[in-house]
Simulated scan of single mutants.
Amino acid sequence: MPLSVQSFVVSPFAENTYVLSSQGEAAIVDPGTASRAERQAVEAYVEAAGLAVRHLLLTHAHIDHVFGCHHFAERYGKAAEHGGWQLHPADAPLLENAVVQGEMFGVRVDPPPPPAHDLAAGDEIALGDVTLRVLHVPGHSPGSVAFYSEADSILVGGDVLFQGSIGRTDLWQGSLDVLLASIRDEVLTLPDATVVYSGHGPKTTVGAERRTNPFLRDL
């Protein structure tokens, strides 16, 4: 069965939380759910679809992507692989300082648990009969990653590439040069038909962004 992607637009940051699923297994990606109602909506979808949450995945650890880490770790962590959230180690300081991040933006966040497993470029994550490959795409944050299903032509890319834009680089250890290199080397090398599910805004394709995204003209 192909990879199913269900999105939830959540929090004051209008972040996209994703539930990926295949063959009855699910991965929750980037739980930006800031309210009880938003968390319940994700749980209701998982339960109605009869899914077993096998993975808890973070593309990066900025505040708008981790509001729900504490809640979903308690709800699904024991049954998930590695017992909790999977994150690139370069973003571990961001997760550790999630409460401080919240204070900077004037919002409250429940302290997330430490990462349970380190992600690295080239890792393969099994989900039903789908394999997700981990791409390391720093620049927006030092540990940003994307999850790529070659068979399904799907990239869950976090805040690296948006429809008509790219991720901001003015936060801790962000770098425009590094981000553009990540997009050039890891994203634009994928087939044009690859559907990109971003951390904010609508989905797009690699080909559409290659042709029309003003930030990519010189890549």
Rank of each mutant, 00 (worst) to 15 (best):
M1D: 00
Q6E: 10
E15A: 15
E15W: 09
T17D: 13
V19F: 09
E25P: 09
I28Y: 01
V29R: 10
V29W: 12
D30M: 13
G32N: 07
T33W: 03
S35I: 02
A44Y: 03
A44C: 09
Y45K: 01
Y45V: 02
E47D: 15
A49C: 05
A49G: 06
L51K: 06
L51A: 03
T59E: 00
H62L: 10
I63Q: 13
D64P: 03
H70S: 13
H71C: 08
H71L: 11
A73M: 08
G83Y: 12
P89W: 07
D91F: 14
A98I: 02
G102Y: 15
G102V: 13
M104V: 02
F105T: 13
V107L: 04
V109W: 05
D110H: 01
A116T: 08
A120D: 10
A120I: 07
A121R: 12
D123W: 02
D123K: 01
D123Q: 03
D129I: 05
V130N: 05
H136A: 13
S141M: 15
G143A: 04
A146C: 14
Y148C: 00
S149I: 04
S149K: 14
S153Y: 13
V156G: 08
V156C: 12
G157P: 00
G157N: 13
D159Y: 08
V160Q: 15
V160D: 11
L161G: 11
L161W: 04
L161T: 05
F162G: 07
G164W: 07
G164E: 11
G167T: 05
L171D: 10
S175K: 10
L176M: 13
D177L: 10
D177G: 00
V178L: 14
L179T: 05
L180T: 13
L180M: 13
A181K: 15
E186T: 02
L188V: 11
T189D: 12
A193Y: 01
V195E: 06
Y197C: 03
S198D: 00
S198W: 01
P202R: 06
K203A: 14
T205D: 00
T212V: 05
N213V: 09
L216R: 00
R217H: 11
D218N: 10
L219A: 02
